Amino acid sequence: MTEYKLVVVGAGGVGKSALTIQLIQNHFVDEYDPTIEDSYRKQVVIDGETCLLDILDTAGQEEYSAMRDQYMRTGEGFLCVFAINNTKSFEDIHHYREQIKRVKDSEDVPMVLVGNKCDLPSRTVDTKQAQDLARSYGIPFIETSAKTRQGVDDAFYTLVREIRKHKEKMSKDGKKKKKKSKTKCVIM
């Protein structure tokens, strides 16, 4: 069974824990209790493949930012979460993405942009803004509501699919490099 290491990042209060708990335990946590770091595991079937999701729910508070490099190193894919009623959390996505790329030393890291709290009427981040940002990053965008469960499975499952595509691409690139290195030079 394939294991996928997913990391949920975003500013404090955007609903990272609520999304994760909704996926794992099928219930909505409405009281806000700032996370330092929590880890969850769940076995699911995605596109006919049974897999184990190892999900790291991270601290959004700035005082825990020193811990970010460590979990970013171990993560295979990242859910970059903002709240649709919090423009600052949307603007912060850029910083999370840049930090992930720096730590992973790669421009090509599996990510999904997630606009959470889409059940709320007080939207300050337009869907088109988020779609445009995701398009500019070359990553999928999904709106979710941890409260109603809308888009929750889709967000995590899409990230797994992005990781699969990335692994497939990397193995193809690896095979191309191996083929090239088999060419021999004969000096007579």
Rank of each mutant, 00 (worst) to 15 (best):
residue 156 F to K: 00
residue 132 D to E: 13
residue 167 K to P: 01
residue 156 F to Y: 08
residue 126 D to S: 09
residue 169 K to M: 15
residue 150 Q to S: 14
residue 186 V to L: 10
residue 178 K to W: 03
residue 159 L to F: 01
residue 126 D to R: 03
residue 134 A to S: 07
residue 128 K to N: 13
residue 129 Q to T: 12
residue 162 E to N: 07
residue 173 D to R: 01
residue 152 V to L: 14
residue 136 S to A: 12
residue 167 K to Q: 12
residue 127 T to M: 12
residue 164 R to T: 04
residue 155 A to V: 08
residue 130 A to V: 11
residue 168 E to V: 09
residue 182 K to G: 09
residue 181 S to V: 07
residue 176 K to S: 13
residue 129 Q to Y: 08
residue 167 K to N: 14
residue 126 D to H: 08
residue 131 Q to K: 10
residue 128 K to F: 10
residue 128 K to E: 14
residue 131 Q to H: 12
residue 133 L to E: 10
residue 177 K to S: 14
residue 135 R to G: 08
residue 128 K to G: 13
residue 144 T to F: 00
residue 156 F to G: 00
residue 145 S to T: 09
residue 132 D to K: 07
residue 154 D to W: 04
residue 164 R to S: 05
residue 168 E to G: 13
residue 145 S to P: 00
residue 169 K to H: 14
residue 134 A to V: 05
residue 128 K to S: 13
residue 125 V to Q: 15
residue 187 I to S: 15
residue 166 H to M: 06
residue 141 F to S: 02
residue 153 D to P: 06
residue 137 Y to R: 02
residue 152 V to H: 02
residue 127 T to P: 08
residue 133 L to V: 12
residue 131 Q to P: 03
residue 126 D to A: 08
residue 126 D to G: 10
residue 133 L to Y: 07
residue 133 L to K: 07
residue 133 L to W: 07
residue 158 T to Y: 14
residue 153 D to Y: 04
residue 157 Y to E: 15
residue 169 K to A: 06
residue 158 T to S: 06
residue 159 L to S: 00
residue 177 K to W: 06
residue 149 R to E: 10
residue 152 V to G: 03
residue 132 D to R: 05
residue 159 L to K: 00
residue 127 T to Q: 10
residue 128 K to D: 13
residue 164 R to W: 02
residue 181 S to R: 06
residue 130 A to R: 02
residue 142 I to L: 10
residue 166 H to I: 06
residue 155 A to P: 04
residue 128 K to A: 12
residue 127 T to F: 09
residue 186 V to R: 00
residue 160 V to N: 02
residue 173 D to V: 02
residue 174 G to S: 14
residue 127 T to V: 11
residue 159 L to Y: 00
residue 159 L to G: 01
residue 158 T to I: 04
residue 130 A to K: 02
residue 162 E to G: 02
residue 153 D to W: 01
residue 136 S to M: 14
residue 138 G to C: 05
residue 173 D to L: 05
residue 125 V to H: 06
residue 176 K to R: 08
residue 128 K to W: 08
residue 131 Q to D: 12
residue 151 G to R: 04
residue 142 I to D: 00
residue 154 D to A: 11
residue 135 R to I: 03
residue 183 T to N: 14
residue 162 E to S: 04
residue 172 K to Y: 14
residue 130 A to E: 08
residue 137 Y to T: 04
residue 187 I to R: 15
residue 151 G to L: 10
residue 126 D to V: 07
residue 143 E to D: 13
residue 160 V to T: 03
residue 157 Y to Q: 14
residue 135 R to Y: 08
residue 137 Y to D: 07
residue 165 K to M: 09
residue 127 T to C: 11
residue 133 L to C: 08
residue 167 K to T: 12
residue 136 S to P: 01
residue 126 D to N: 09
residue 132 D to G: 06
residue 188 M to K: 15
residue 155 A to T: 03
residue 159 L to V: 08
residue 154 D to Y: 08
residue 175 K to F: 06
residue 181 S to L: 04
residue 144 T to K: 00
residue 152 V to Q: 03
residue 139 I to L: 06
residue 125 V to W: 07
residue 130 A to P: 07
residue 127 T to S: 13
residue 162 E to K: 06
residue 152 V to T: 07
residue 160 V to P: 00
residue 153 D to N: 07
residue 135 R to T: 10
residue 166 H to A: 12
residue 158 T to G: 06
residue 145 S to L: 01
residue 132 D to N: 11
residue 130 A to D: 02
residue 152 V to P: 02
residue 186 V to A: 14
residue 146 A to S: 00
residue 151 G to Y: 06
residue 132 D to Y: 03
residue 185 C to V: 01
residue 136 S to V: 09
residue 138 G to N: 12
residue 132 D to I: 06
residue 129 Q to R: 13
residue 154 D to S: 12
residue 152 V to N: 07
residue 156 F to Q: 02
residue 169 K to Y: 05
residue 167 K to Y: 05
residue 167 K to R: 12
residue 188 M to I: 03
residue 154 D to P: 05
residue 128 K to L: 10
residue 160 V to E: 01
residue 160 V to S: 02
residue 153 D to A: 12
residue 130 A to W: 14
residue 131 Q to F: 07
residue 156 F to E: 01
residue 178 K to A: 09
residue 145 S to F: 02
residue 176 K to C: 12
residue 169 K to R: 10
residue 155 A to N: 00
residue 170 M to C: 13
residue 158 T to M: 10
residue 127 T to E: 11
residue 170 M to V: 12
residue 176 K to V: 02
residue 156 F to R: 00
residue 128 K to Y: 09
residue 149 R to V: 07
residue 154 D to R: 07
residue 156 F to L: 12
residue 152 V to S: 03
residue 166 H to E: 03
residue 156 F to M: 13
residue 129 Q to C: 05
residue 131 Q to Y: 10
residue 167 K to F: 03
residue 138 G to V: 01
residue 180 K to A: 08
residue 145 S to R: 03
residue 126 D to K: 07
residue 126 D to Q: 05
residue 166 H to K: 06
residue 154 D to K: 10
